[in-house]
Amino acid sequence: MKSIGAILTVFLGGLLIYCSMDFPPWGDPDSPANSHVSPYYIEHTLEDTSVPNIVTSVLADYRGYDTMFETIVIFTAGIACIFLLRMFKTVEPETRLYRHLPTGITLRIAKGGKFPDDSDHFKRIDSDWVPHDLILQTTCRMIIPFIQIFALYVIAHGHHSPGGGFQGGVIFGASIILFAIAFDLRSAIKRMGERLTAFLCALGVFIYAGVGLVCMLYGNNFLDYSALADIMGVDPISARSHGILMVEVGVGIVVMAVMVVLYYNLASAGKQDEGL
């Protein structure tokens, strides 16, 4: 089995290397990939959409359908993860660990015992709790707001510099995952709950499809943002640029929410009780 797999892989690799002889040389400006549709995008993006970042204009305007369904794929992956892993029946854990904050004593409460409420005196801790995480938590508390502002900048500045909804959404999701790792999963869920993340997943797709539908209501094609010119009071070219921004915000929300959903469910294996 092993040798068959190795032979098959080497055979396929050899075939591909043989075929690579017919490829155009690296960096050839006249290669087929560079000479059909992409020159149009490069030369007309400013007059069509007034967006200098060609990647953004192609992503959200010329190929808006493609991106919309990519967003739906991400949304579906998040929902699938919830359905696969999330256990809606709360399984009582064997034992729980509580820390009495004034004295620093850890209480181990067995099944059937009375669990204290979270208060100033008692705090629930994970079974693999590390006591000395002062530096980590302080650093995270200082750095997370800046990560989130940078994420918003990346989303909002996607028209003029590298960036956009996908990248900004991932950075924003990473900031929340960082919070969940540095503190614990329960305090992250307390701040950004399950319902909220699931709602944001759906909201982002709704924003994207909704912008397309509004364009249809105004008599243009689906996702033809120039129809928004009347609502926003700008010329059709600028309206396209603004439409791209709205769509990018939707993409950012979906990506952020799905990253958080994936982390919550994978880290706790669906229990959303104790994380990493």
Binding site: A33, N34, V37, S38, Y41, I42, I54, V55, V58, L59, R63, D66, T67, E70, V73, I74, A77, G78, A80, C81, L84, G164, F166, Q167, G169, V170, V255, V258, M259, L262, L266
Partner: peptide
């Protein structure tokens, strides 16, 4: 050429999502 960048930009994020599944 911006086109491969656009396609791969979405593909990377979709790859992460499918990896999660």
């Amino acid at each position: 050429n911006p086109l491969p960048h656009v396609l791969m930009l979405t593909a990377i994020v979709v790859a992460v999502a499918t990896l999660g599944v």
